[in-house]
Each structure stands twice: as structure tokens, then as C-alpha cells.
């Protein structure tokens, strides 16, 4: 029983980690919180529903389509909501936050209109395939989600630490002006970051569809808020912190559903936010700097 719950928790947590990675990349490079990330994730999930359930195409096409659509959304987000505010005189630092809130309610209500308010089932051919290991049951879907998440995290870590584009991204995150003086095309790096984060959101959307078999327009909001909780837990802009924070939150939520009051499941993330911000604003894995929490 406990072991099964842990497996459930890790499955959920690895999806959370992918969502949080999108948040943390954008925060690391741009220093802003992308409130629209949850909605981009939700659109990714709906693309998955369209491809697999409505059109009846295989799952890998759904992944490609979701990545394609979310990449376009990410580019538009950068061009319409973020770039006009950058480097403009007299724009408060809260402006990008408010403008991404605008994008998020626009996308949420758009999909509300297109797809309707209800739950959409996410059908795929191997939903019921399961393995019996001793006394515990593991679903193939869970293994698939876990493998995809871990692969994404490893590839992303490698890309960030070893490739030229990844180094450019980290340099931009460290200091935008210095990076641009050293010959990094910061404009392109920022666009790449937003697009990459959106694509991660799209993939996470399909993974959630696979895991819970239901997709609705409101899921973006709750997932977005949880993603925020995770990056605050793990330290803002910290890639490893986002992964660990995602797993922690996934485990914590599964445990409270199994052994506590399931009604308070969604509150865990927010209570975590408040306590972490008050006790350790730099996050569990964050470095203690004077800037943290400011």
C-alpha cells in the first residue's frame, strides 16, 4: 500500500517537476513569473485530447503536435506580452506579471469557449496495461511518464551545462548586460528560453492527460499555482531545485490523499508557498543572497 502510494507520488511529482522546470527557466533568464505557463500546459493537454481521442491518431503524434502548438504560443507570448515591456522607461517590475496574467485568463477562457467547461477523457491504447510486482500494481502509463520525465530532465541538464546555447542561456540568466557584451545574442536566447519553457509545458500537459485521463480548462490555473509553489520551494531559477521540489510536492499530495483529508490536497501547495516564503525565501535549495525575497 505505502509503496504503491510512493509510486503514485513519484509519477505525479515528475509531472510537477516538468511544469516547474518551465517556470524556473523563464524566471532564471528573465526574472519574471510567467503566470501563463499553466494555461500553455492546459492547451498542450487539449491538443493531446484532440489528436488521440477525437482524431484517433497514435500518442507520439500527439506529443509532436502539442510541442508544435505550445512552441507557437510561447513565441507569441514573448512577442506580444513580454518583449514590448522590456527595456521600456518607467515600466514597473510588476508589469510583466500582470501582462502574463492577462495572457493566462485569455487562454483559459478561449479554451473554455472552444472545448466547453466539462472534463474531456484522454483515451490511449495502453491505459489498462499493468504489472504485478509482488503485492503492488504498477501501470505501464506510470512507467512511461516517469521515463519521459527523467529523460527530459537529463537532456535539459546536459543541454544547459554542455552545449553552447545552454551556456548562453545560463550566461544571460547570470547577467543580461554582461552576456550581451560578451557576444551572446540575448534577444534570441530569451526567445529560445520562453519557447523551450512552453514546449516543456505542452509535454507536461499530455503527461497529465495520460495520468489522470481527464482534461479541463480549469486545470491550467491549479497546475500553474502548484508550479509556482514548487519553484519557490526549490529556489527561484534553480533547475535542480525545481526537479526535487516537484517530486516532494507530488509525494506530499499523494500522502495526504491516502492518509489525510483529500479536500485539503490543493491547499498543501499554497500553505507551502506561504511558509517557505516566510521562513526561507530563497527556497530549500537556493543560495542565501541579499537579493532573495526582494
Amino acid at each position: 500500500m505505502l509503496l504503491e502510494q510512493i509510486i503514485n507520488g513519484i509519477t505525479l511529482g515528475s509531472i510537477y517537476a516538468i511544469v516547474a522546470l518551465g517556470f524556473t527557466l523563464v524566471f532564471g533568464v528573465l526574472g519574471i513569473i510567467n503566470m501563463a505557463h499553466g494555461e500553455i500546459f492546459m492547451i498542450g493537454a487539449f491538443i493531446g485530447v484532440l489528436i488521440t481521442s477525437v482524431l484517433g491518431l497514435p500518442l507520439w503524434i500527439a506529443f509532436i503536435a502539442a510541442i508544435g502548438v505550445t512552441v507557437i504560443l510561447g513565441y507569441m507570448l514573448e512577442r506580444i506580452a513580454l518583449r514590448p515591456l522590456r527595456g521600456k522607461q518607467g515600466v514597473s517590475h510588476l508589469a510583466p506579471l500582470i501582462s502574463t496574467i492577462g495572457v493566462s485568463i485569455l487562454l483559459e477562457n478561449l479554451s473554455h469557449h472552444i472545448f466547453g467547461a466539462g472534463n474531456h477523457p484522454f483515451r490511449h491504447s495502453f491505459a489498462q496495461i499493468q504489472f504485478q510486482v509482488g503485492s503492488i500494481t504498477i501501470y505501464l502509463v506510470q512507467i512511461l511518464i516517469f521515463v519521459i520525465s527523467i529523460t527530459l530532465m537529463v537532456v535539459l541538464s546536459y543541454w544547459l551545462s554542455k552545449t553552447k546555447a545552454g551556456k548562453a542561456l545560463r550566461a544571460t540568466a547570470e547577467n543580461l548586460e554582461t552576456a550581451s557584451l560578451l557576444g551572446v545574442n540575448t534577444k534570441r536566447t530569451i526567445t529560445t528560453t520562453v519557447i523551450l519553457a512552453s514546449a516543456l509545458g505542452g509535454i507536461a500537459g499530455i503527461l497529465v492527460g495520460m495520468a489522470f485521463n481527464s482534461v479541463n480548462p480549469q486545470m491550467g490555473l491549479s497546475m500553474g499555482l502548484k508550479g509556482l509553489a514548487i519553484i519557490i520551494l526549490g529556489g527561484m531559477g534553480n533547475v535542480k531545485g525545481a526537479m526535487a521540489g516537484g517530486l516532494l510536492l507530488g509525494l506530499a499530495e499523494t500522502m495526504i490523499v491516502a492518509y489525510g483529508d483529500s479536500g485539503y490536497r490543493d491547499a498543501i501547495a499554497f500553505i507551502t508557498i506561504i511558509f517557505i516564503l516566510l521562513l526561507r525565501p530563497q527556497g530549500i535549495f537556493g543560495k542565501n543572497t541579499a537579493e532573495a525575497g526582494r
Binding site: I32, H93, F270, L277, L278, P281, G293
Partner: peptide
């Protein structure tokens, strides 16, 4: 919340609102 400002305060208060609703 005095320890927080800007974006962090916005998130913490957003979290507070959701906790109250839950």
C-alpha cells in the same frame, strides 16, 4: 509579508487567497 516584495508578495498573497477559499 514585509520580508517579501514585488513578485514574491504577489505570489504569497495569491497563495493566501487560495488557502482561504479551500
Amino acid at each position: 509579508a514585509l520580508r517579501l516584495s514585488g513578485v514574491y508578495l504577489a505570489i504569497a498573497t495569491l497563495g493566501f487567497g487560495e488557502v482561504i477559499r479551500v
